[in-house]
């Protein structure tokens, strides 16, 4: 089997051109491995080889971001590599940003796996951790001996298309993707050890850093309900009998839009719930209990509201990812706006 072809990006210092005084040099391509590339070659063994190394001044890259990205991208393209690696940049800020920028561009433009490495506090880490995989390294080149084997191992997994383990197993900076793995100890023991550290005032590492919530301010109140069009949106899983869209009972992959023109009442013959998070008996007996079509229709007839919107939108909230819910909500909101809906009754179960 032939070896995977790798292109490596390094800065002027690791390219042995010079220090800060040579940071202005434009990108140049050299054949084969250079500097840290030699150590990578050793670690790749028979699996992969560095066919070309791009050496570039940190100042030149950062001061000419667009031109530099384009130039380096072209140099990579010429080699048609299977894998692109950059750095490691340790705590060198401009080098880190260059590594992140070019890895992101190569990944997007060429669709090949990319990998870089840097110190967790490198500004490039914060900028690119959710876009490209970054192996966590020491803050100086003294950490090269540990960084290269870790990067080489992960790079080979990427190029072979193998499953990537969790950040703690593979040694990359958390990239915002939650991945399962089997720890050495059971959860209760990990909790006790974490608690003992917390009590003693020692540093401890949470397994799940808390996210920050976005808060949406409510719309101003409707002044005249008698002219308002009211729609129903639910995460309670109410669907026409038989669940025509086959919305899942948990972790829903879709939502449904259902027409209720002329429907005055939801009955056990016509509607049911797809929701798997509760005893469905009462929802199935009378789906109005989850989405109040009967009452809103009555209000419409009495003139208390202008109109009940002709469609209702329904998904299952049970175990459904927030990202999925956001996506459905954005699509539903566009539909509601296009129909000039004034207000929505949102129900959940």
């Amino acid at each position: 089997m032939s070896k995977f072809k790798v292109v490596h990006y390094i800065n002027q210092f690791f390219g042995q051109v010079g220090g800060e005084e040579m940071a202005h040099i434009p990108a140049e391509k050299r054949e084969g491995p250079v500097g840290p590339g030699l150590a990578f070659t050793k670690n790749f063994g028979d699996d992969a080889e560095i066919v070309a190394t791009i050496v570039c001044g940190d100042s030149w890259f950062n001061e000419n971001l667009e031109l530099a990205t384009e130039t380096v991208l072209d140099m990579v393209k010429e080699e048609s590599p299977d894998l692109f690696i950059a750095g490691p940049a340790f705590n060198a800020g401009r080098y880190g940003v260059a590594c992140g920028t070019i890895c992101d561009a190569v990944q997007t433009e060429l669709g090949i796996p990319v990998l870089t490495g840097m110190y967790v506090e490198n500004p490039g880490a914060d900028m690119f951790r959710t876009k490209v995989l970054i192996v966590s390294t020491a803050d100086s080149a003294a950490g090269m001996r540990r960084a290269v084997p870790a990067m080489a191992k992960l790079a080979l997994k990427l190029v072979k298309g193998e499953r990537i383990g969790a950040s703690v197993e593979e040694g990359y900076i958390p990239d915002g993707v939650r991945r399962n793995f089997f720890d050495k100890k059971r959860g209760s023991t990990r909790a006790l050890e974490m608690l003992l550290k917390k009590i003693a005032g020692e540093p401890f590492e949470t397994e799940y850093p808390m996210p920050t919530f976005d808060r949406v301010p409510p719309m101003p109140a409707i002044t005249d309900m008698t002219k308002a069009t009211i729609a129903i949106v639910t995460s309670g899983g109410i669907v026409p009998k038989g669940n025509p869209d086959r919305i899942e009972s948990s972790s829903a992959s879709k939502y449904g839009s259902y027409n209720i023109e002329g429907v005055d009442d939801l009955t056990s013959e016509t509607y049911e719930t797809a929701h798997g998070g509760h005893d469905p008996v009462y929802a199935n007996e009378d789906a109005d209990r989850v989405i109040p079509v009967d009452v809103l229709r009555q209000y419409e007839k009495e003139g208390k509201i202008g109109k009940l919107h002709d469609w209702f939108y329904s998904t299952v909230g049970n175990g459904t990812a927030v990202a999925s819910s956001k996506k459905y909500a954005a699509e539903i909101a566009e539909k509601l706006i296009s129909y000039d809906v004034d207000a929505v009754v949102l129900t959940s179960t």
Partner: peptide, 12 residues
């Protein structure tokens, strides 16, 4: 994914 910590599985 037991929440009494019965298992070794975790995530990052």
């Amino acid at each position: 994914t037991n929440e009494m910590g019965f298992n070794r599985m975790s995530a990052r």
